[in-house]
Each structure stands twice: as C-alpha cells, then as structure tokens.
Nucleic acid binder design. Structure first.
Lengths: 181, 181
DNA sequence: ACAGAATATGTGGTCGGCCAACTAATGGGG
DNA sequence: CCCCATTAGTTGGCCGACCACATATTCTGT
C-alpha cells in the first residue's frame, strides 16, 4: 500500500489477489436493493439488446416502435411525452428509424411546427418479433417464480415506481398523461 | 385514418386526443414486469444521475469509483471483469476520470501490457457524497415499504438476477469472480 | 393587431456503452 | 529458440440519452 492515503479497503492487496473481495462494492451497501435493481436492469437490457439486434433494432428503439404501433400517426411531441425522453433523443432516433424504413415522417398540415410520425409496413412487420422477444425475456426473467411471487414483484416494483416518479418526475407513462395518446 | 395500412391501434386518433390511450404499450403486455422494471430502472438512473452531477460524476462512473474505493491499485482488466463492461468503455471512462483528477493510471511494472489504476485523494473525497446519494436514493425508492416488503423485493430481484445471469452471461459481480479483487 | 410567452423540432456536443479491428506484450509448444 | 495463440489496452465508429442553444410557429394578453 504505497504512497497516498490508502483506500478504506479491507483487503489491501494480499487478500484481493486470492479473490475474496466482496462482490457488491462496499460503498453500495447503503443501497442493496438499488444495486440489485441496477444490475438486473442492465442484464435485462443486454438480453433484450441481443434479441433486438437480430430484428434490426437497437435497444431503446423498441419502446418507440411499441408506441407507434399503438397509435396511428402521432406528433413527435406526443412521443416525447409518452416516452419521457429528451426531444433531441426522439428527433435523432426517428431520423434513424426513418432511414431504416421502419417509420415515415411528414409535416402536420394542422400545425406547421409539428411532425407526424407513423409506422411503415416494414416497421409493422417487426411487431411480432419484438413482442415475441419481449415475452420470451419476461418468461426467462421470471422463470421459477410462482404466480404469487410474480404478482408480488410487480406490486413492489409498482410501489418503487410511484416513489421514484415524484422525483424523477418525467413521464414515461400514465400518471399525468397530459394529452392525446 | 388516411392512406396507408393503418396500425392496429384501437383509437385511430379521435379517442387519442382525449387522453385515453393505454399507458403501457399494448405490445408490452406480454412482459408487464419487464416493462415496469425498465421504467423503474430508468427513473432510478435519472434520479441518481441528478445527485451524481452535483458531485461532478456522470451516471455509470459511480460504479467504477466504488470498485476503485474497495480495491487498491487494480489492473484495468480486473475492472472490466468485475464491472462486466466492454474494455473500450472502461478505457474511455478511465481516461476521463483521470483527466478530472479522480483517478491515476500507471503502467504495471510486472506486465508491460497492463495498466494499474488507483483512486486519487480527490477521487477518494467523493466517496462520502456518493454513498450518501446512494443511501438517500435507496430510502426514497423504498419509502413506505415495510421491512418485510423490502426483504421480499430484494429476494425476488435476486431470483430474477440469477435467471438473467445465465443468458446475459457477462459478469457484473460475484459468480465467476475470476481473479483478484 | 402585435409583441412576447409558449410550443415543436432541430443542432452540436458530451457521456456511457457496444462492436470491430488493431497494436503490444506474454506465454506455450514444438 | 522461435512461432503463434492468448491476453491487455487502445482507437474509431455508432447509438441511446442528456443538455444548452437556436429556429420556426402558434398562442395570448393587451
């Protein structure tokens, strides 16, 4: 342990080499659930990303497409609202989705500022694949969990979502549901 | 509902304007838990990002710092292993953390390919803030949950993590724990 | 009718994160 | 002893996502 103030580490280096070091960082002890949540979400995202890539989508785009599958031609601003994303994020993502032919954009005749977005036939064709991937991943994630456990997990996650919603404000879903769609 | 094959949408646009459109995309019904999980994780990340910004960190960097706080000087490859990140991600993140003075890098005398990374005093000074933010967010997230519920949530998330671990392979934490730290 | 607020998008830049391709050093066999 | 597979890092490129800032249009109050 040379030089500067050695970190608080319990294993200066000897034990570390043996592979004893605790898995969750000690600094994360104050938030074990948060840590597991982040870990699970990340693995979930990776797993979903793998499935999506085979479909020709990048992670994140599937939520956009889901929204577009639900609504007909939508204003970009409504997508921003319902997805809770930054406007610039949506602009760029739609530009790419359009270039890939999954989506079509045209100016809104009723409001020359706005842009109407709608799915193309090619984009609609992705739906089955995405839904299948989504369901498959759900089943993989919850494998071995009894229905009661699944319900309990959904309930608890919902509570956490409500707690975070107030601070993370945003949108992402229902609560405010400001306008259309 | 003009022109091209109209999406399956239940509300072509009239009802949409009234704000009736379902919150979770219908395509996500096959994976309600996955959807909530992604939503919660995203809000959690945003909330954590806000706290981290005040400390001068970007989301994602806190996990790196936590790892560095635990171990003394570590090889970059070990960070890659324990965080489960892509090597290039780690390289770039460390370059930025070094430029900010939170981290120091020097060649490993024992292996001229490797690089040893360690936290600086300035980086160590962030620890209290990060841990505080982490704990605060944990408390915010779990607010109103009885201890039993918290334990149950942790348990269920752990099960999901195990399920996903097999596919998402990766690392991220303990199971393999290949080498030191 | 018009100035100023509010709305709807787009730009440029930065970061985390991944992949692919590349360099440099180590370590085994033959 | 030398060739080659392996390992450690780096670079470049691309995408999601954010912010700050800039633009065009619509809306509102006076």
């Amino acid at each position: 342990m040379p030089g500067t103030t050695d970190p608080v580490c319990t294993e200066p280096r000897a034990a570390a080499r043996t592979g004893v070091c605790g898995e969750p960082p000690t600094a994360a002890r104050g938030g074990p659930v948060s840590h597991t949540l982040a870990r699970v979400a990340r693995m979930h995202r990776i797993a979903m990303g793998r499935r999506l890539r085979e479909l020709g989508l990048y992670p994140g785009q599937e939520l956009m497409m889901m929204r577009l599958w639900d609504c007909g031609p939508v204003r970009q601003s409504e997508l921003i609202q319902s997805l809770g994303l930054d406007p610039s994020t949506v602009t760029k993502m739609l530009q790419r989705l359009e270039q890939c032919g999954h989506v079509r954009r045209r100016p809104d005749p009723a409001d020359r500022r706005a842009v109407l977005v709608e799915v193309t036939d090619e984009g609609l064709a992705l739906r089955a694949g995405v839904e299948g991937a989504w369901q498959g991943l759900e089943e993989l994630s919850l494998g071995g969990l009894a229905p009661a456990d699944r319900a309990e997990l959904a309930r608890l996650l919902g509570l956490v979502a409500d707690n975070l919603y107030e601070e993370a404000g945003e949108e992402g879903d229902c609560p405010p549901l400001p306008k259309s769609c």
